[in-house]
Design a protein around this nucleic acid. Structure first.
Length: 471
RNA sequence: GCCCCCAUCGUCUAGUGGCCUAGGACACCACCCUUUCAAGGUGGCGGCACGGGUUCGAAUCCCGUUGGGGGUGCCA
């Protein structure tokens, strides 16, 4: 007998953007497919065709590509659209009915609730099981849940046992004849020879229903694995409404895909050893589904940013400069500004690289070099010039700057000389100068950018600040 | 209500009965370095939810309690 090719399905819903929780599950499936020489099957899940927009699916594929899941790879298959198999879903439901595993029911939701209230029991009581109803207007097809127990063998959690009596006869076909998600899912999984279903924990309570369906259709159920969900600070499942969850958003802010992937993999799982920053190949070698944690994990943006900072600092300089190109923008300054100069930026890049965690922070460190009139932080300005030595020393510095050699080291020496004279340390003394040049009180080392800015412009800014302080 | 899952520093985790005085990472704090801010270095703070068992021995196994989450749709 030929060995069965393992097939892992990744089944996101077609909502315009891609969820970080989904990204992690995708990664798990992708790693498993690679480890076992299997196939990663992408199926976009919605029984309602009107929601299958091509651009949404493309968004999912782009996001997958960003985190390193390549749709051109031989291990990648799809995308498939669940809604395009609707006819098959209905036909299968009818098979189930014909085989005696289902029955039609004409009760409305209100009637079911009334019966439940009257009997004191929960949910639907199986009222129509033996009424012999056929398909018809207002009739739903329900699955006849057998007696006994259903045991779900889960790679992550072990055996989970459900008493079938606690599971009501669930709907397969709506009264308008359309199939429900639960059924569509199983039919598609069987049709696509799916062998492993790795998905979020929230699906665990529905798994016995799906497993019954697999059995009713004469197929051995797949290997199940329910991984913990990602939660917000309130410990609630990450929600698109409340939380910042779009992978694309992190991409646009300058999170590096390697950092994102590495961070995501440390939620619910950890590589061996004392360091969590590990290369992707290492993760692929070491990851085991059996070792995935059982409890929900908080998606910590601060830690993500810290990982990203590490990855930024690991980059060779030219790669860093290159990565900056795509994200150089800021809200206050249109980017790239008129007088953007690549050479100048490249000269600044080494000073910037250790000072950002996210690439979008880059512009705020260099924008003053490329704008005619950098906006001035008023509060910082006032504070910097409050010392009695501030204005006189700055004037003195500007005088010295008029004649000295225009290189960073020389500029620094001039400022230090003024400091020695007034008995003010360089760290303090450079405050007013920094505000004058950059408009801010913190930033990269000062003298390199002053050199890059040039004598004329630097002096102009200093004079302008002196005037402002005099007002 | 009913069903299911979960429980180690603030957070993410290591831990699979003795290597645990519970290890690491992020965050936080202090110091060093320093041209502000970072980066880097050193150190610090901080945890096995609770109660019963089992065992010579429990973070680890069992039961219960409490707390959290999820599911329970003619949503996906």
């Amino acid at each position: 007998m030929a060995a069965l090719t393992p097939r892992y399905r990744f089944a996101p819903s077609p909502t315009g953007f891609f969820h970080v929780g989904g990204a992690r599950t995708a990664l798990y499936n992708w790693i498993l497919a690679q480890q076992n020489d299997g196939v990663f099957v992408l199926r976009v899940e919605d029984t309602d065709e009107s929601r299958n927009h091509p651009q949404w699916t493309q968004g999912i594929i782009d996001a997958l590509a960003w985190i390193g899941i390549d749709s051109g790879d031989p291990h990648f298959e799809g995308p498939y659209f669940q809604s395009s198999f609707a006819a098959q879903h209905v036909a299968t439901a009818e098979e189930i009915f014909a085989a005696g595993h289902g029955y039609y029911c004409d009760l409305t939701t209100e009637q079911i609730q009334e019966r439940a209230k009257a009997s004191g029991l929960n949910g639907y009581d199986g009222y129509s099981r033996d009424r012999g109803l056929g398909p018809g207007l207002g009739h739903v097809l329900r699955f006849k849940v057998p007696t006994g127990h259903t045991i779900v063998h889960d790679v992550v959690r072990g055996e989970v046992e459900f008493a079938n009596e606690t599971i009501e006869d669930f709907v397969l076909l709506r009264s308008n004849g359309s199939p429900v998600f639960l059924l569509a899912n199983v039919v598609d999984d069987i049709a696509m020879n799916i062998t492993h279903v790795v998905r979020a924990e929230e699906h665990l309570p529905n798994t016995p229903k799906q497993q019954m369906l697999w059995n009713a259709l004469g197929s051995p159920p797949p290997v199940w694995a329910h991984v913990p969900v990602l939660v917000n600070e309130q410990r609630k499942k990450l929600s698109k409404r409340r939380d910042k969850v779009a992978v694309e958003q992190y991409r646009d802010e300058g999170i590096l895909p390697r950092a994102m992937v590495n961070y995501l993999m440390t939620l619910g799982w950890a590589p061996h050893g004392d360091t969590e920053i590990v290369p992707w190949t290492h993760i692929v070698d070491e990851f085991r589904l059996e070792n995935v944690n059982h409890s929900p994990a908080f998606f910590d943006i601060k830690k993500l940013a810290a990982f990203n900072g590490e990855y930024i600092r690991m980059m060779p300089l030219d790669e860093f400069i290159d990565a900056c190109q795509s994200v150089l923008h800021s809200e206050s300054v249109p980017w790239p500004p008129e007088n953007f100069n690549f050479e100048v930026f490249a000269a600044m890049a080494p000073l910037v690289q250790t000072r950002v965690a996210v690439l979008s922070e880059v512009s705020a460190l260099v924008d003053f070099l490329f704008t005619a009139e950098p906006p001035i932080d008023e509060a910082a300005f006032t504070k910097s010039f409050s010392a009695d030595w501030a204005l006189p020393t700055l004037i003195e510095i500007s005088k010295r700057f008029e004649g000295c050699a225009w290189v960073a080291d020389a500029l620094k020496l001039e400022v230090e000389a003024v400091g020695a004279k007034h008995n003010v340390k360089l760290g303090k003394l450079q405050g007013p100068l920094r505000i004058a040049i950059t408009g801010r009180s913190v930033g990269t080392p000062l003298f390199e950018p002053i050199e890059l800015l040039g004598r004329t412009e630097s002096l102009r800014r200093i004079h302008s600040a002196v005037q402002r302080a005099n007002r």
